[in-house]
Amino acid sequence: MADHFDAAAAALLSLDRDAAPDAALLADALTVTGASISTLGDFLGTETVAASDDRAARLDELQFDLGQGPCWDALSAAAPVLEPDLLGAGATRWPALSDALRDPGVAAVFAFPLVLGPLRLGAVDLYSDRAAPLGPVGEEQATALAAILSRHLLRRALRAVGQDEGVDQGSRFSRRVIHQATGFVIAQLGIDPDGAHLLIQGQAFAEGRSMRDVADDIVARRLSFAASSNGFEEVR
């Protein structure tokens, strides 16, 4: 299991910037029946990025249509949402979803948020065809893989809209300020330079501003990510 996890982490980390991640790899690594990866909400739009099988795709689609389900809850709480018994004890949580998933035999669902600092990107959905908890190791590994995926999806989205130049934007002087702002974010969220830089880039894109503008606000202490109590990465 650890081998599968390492392999999945390595595969995700070495993904080509434009490539879609492989959801089946996630399912294998986390020993669940299937997995799907989706972007959710206004920032990157709501769509399935990858699904390991038809049931995983259906699980996503249902949640999009119903506007409820673990992926939405995970994203808004910026925390994992675990339902090991969707058709039994947990059937009252999202009744319409449970009803629709009875026939396909989706018995357990686990959703992990895709977030970077305050940026809400999407979620990973895992399902099992038998009712059983994911377990602490599985939760930890899923969280770690979700953190890698978050960065990948954000980079991919920024690249798609031509905003991936990052620090190369602007003058030399701008870059200094952006590097300093990166340092502020490192200290605020306890993440690595790469993630901090990406967060500034994502924030700039979300607000339709330049990285230099956002960096100026961070260095002048008009903008801080430290206040947000949830949603930052624990994986370095």
Binding site: R175, R176, H179, Q180, A181, T182, G183, F184, V185, I186, A187, Q188, P193, V219, A226
Partner: peptide, 19 residues
Amino acid sequence: RVVIEQAKGVLAHTHQIST
């Protein structure tokens, strides 16, 4: 130099001092 700028930011935030 990039790392030094980042380190200035880390310290400026941690101790609430200027860069």
